[in-house]
Design a protein around this nucleic acid. Sequence first.
DNA 1: TTTTGTGAACGTGTTCACAGCG
DNA 2: CGCTGTGAACACGTTCACAAAA
Lengths: 213, 213
Amino acid sequence: MAKISESTVSRLSHYYRVLEEVAAEGGKVISSQLLAEREGITSAQVRKDLSYFGSFGRRGLGYSVEHLRAQIRAILGLDRRWRVAVIGAGHIGSALLAYRGFASQGFDIVAVFDVDPARVGHPDGALSVRHVSQLSAEDAIDIGVIATPVRAAQEVADALVAAGVRGLLNFAPRKLRVPDDVWVRTVDMTTEFESLSFALSQPHGPRRRRPAG
Amino acid sequence: MAKISESTVSRLSHYYRVLEEVAAEGGKVISSQLLAEREGITSAQVRKDLSYFGSFGRRGLGYSVEHLRAQIRAILGLDRRWRVAVIGAGHIGSALLAYRGFASQGFDIVAVFDVDPARVGHPDGALSVRHVSQLSAEDAIDIGVIATPVRAAQEVADALVAAGVRGLLNFAPRKLRVPDDVWVRTVDMTTEFESLSFALSQPHGPRRRRPAG
DNA sequence: TTTTGTGAACGTGTTCACAGCG
DNA sequence: CGCTGTGAACACGTTCACAAAA
């Protein structure tokens, strides 16, 4: 398969969500135009994104909501469940644990780790917090969420990689060094705030994207 | 000024952080090469990013850490303080409130809002939770953080805009409709997880970026 | 000699525009 | 006729490569 851009994958995730909503509203078919409008992009973008993976629509009609949803679900790898570990039982870690939404999407938080003796051994939600040194390949973790202070982030990433984890979601504002076969996504709230600060400091307001065409 | 890409602004935020670290370590000058290595990008990228705003370095020598830090600080609009409101005193909202890092960067969380009677009127950290209907232009909010359930997100965005807020940080997995002069940044953890799911489902591992050159 | 600053070249993602099919 | 699927055109961000300056 040709290389797929990160933007395309992000949009697939958005399409998937829209399709779930439309299905819940009882919609049976949807055009690229309508799908695009919900996301504020162009219909050509929708069709191009989908075309990388196949031809899921019917000319003159549009896409079957159910069929397209199933296809994107398969493309995104959501037909299986993923074992997630959260490292760092602080505010962000606990917020993630408390949020129920991920399990329904196939992401099961199966372990929580920390180094703080005040936290280790105590429950956080349904899980007992384990010391990070106990993390091992036997935990069979697919995705590790790094919710530690920034100084511990690289060390934790190394430990996760050593335990065979191939996907990291990093909340620490630090570039992580990982082997080539490990994927990292970063959520950097400081950068988000600073991007807003930059934008608000400019003399002119933003230009909105062109509406879906 | 020519249009600055979002990628460039994000990287400026990263450079700023690296410069703070280098300054703390006692470094006085830094080359684009070294700055690039810390972020895993090319030195040409660093120089190009900075060149949009001026000439901050000295040929043959590099950049003064202190001077460049001050310049980027000014560029990002961090020479002033920003008034931030958090809407939604749930897990994410409370995690943000509890996190001390933002205030030191110039972002003061000055108000918390919710609609839940069980939360309104009670303190969350140093702030008392107010009902979202009390939000007004008198709060003089610069940046609104939407940490509500997804169904309330658009309504809250409308209220923020009505109160004169021109920057939104959206944690809800929903595209927000806002006027042209309002900036939105989205942190969508579901999409992050699904992007990892997609990546881990591919037959081949990732390719790392080329090292800084 | 070292390292910046930058026009030009390049590569990649987006949009256009229309052929192809239902 | 309507809407998809897609090659081509376009726009834009990144990298190259070198002149300029310390």
